[in-house]
Amino acid sequence: MTSASGESAATGQPAATDQPTASDQWRLYEVFVRARRGLSHHHVGSVHAPDAQMALRNARDLYTRREEGVSIWVAAAADITASSPQEKDSFFDPAGDKVYRHPTFYDLPDGVQM
């Protein structure tokens, strides 16, 4: 197959137009894997991908290589609204001294698991 080989040998390196530019960088997706039926999905990491379908494939190749999962979710990182570290005090500290929210004042019947 001379046309393909000739071009390959002649070119050797990708043409200048192949060089990635900033706008070519793929979006970031967060990956959630369910380890087995009955468990919920857990965040395992992130991948870059041009779209959600490819993100799913990339996640499969990166995060379920060793039979870690039976289901994968991906979500664009930009679509996730997160609490900010600056809000930590007002968000979480007020729960610290409200021990009555923990069900520790009841005697549990035998056989009930916490």
């Binding site: 990635p20 070519d24 793929w26 991948v47 870059h48 991908a49 494939r57 990339n58 190749d61 990166l62 290589r65």
Partner: peptide
Amino acid sequence: APQLEEDMALAN
């Protein structure tokens, strides 16, 4: 590959 993710896919 153009991205690490595709590198992994091809190696797989």
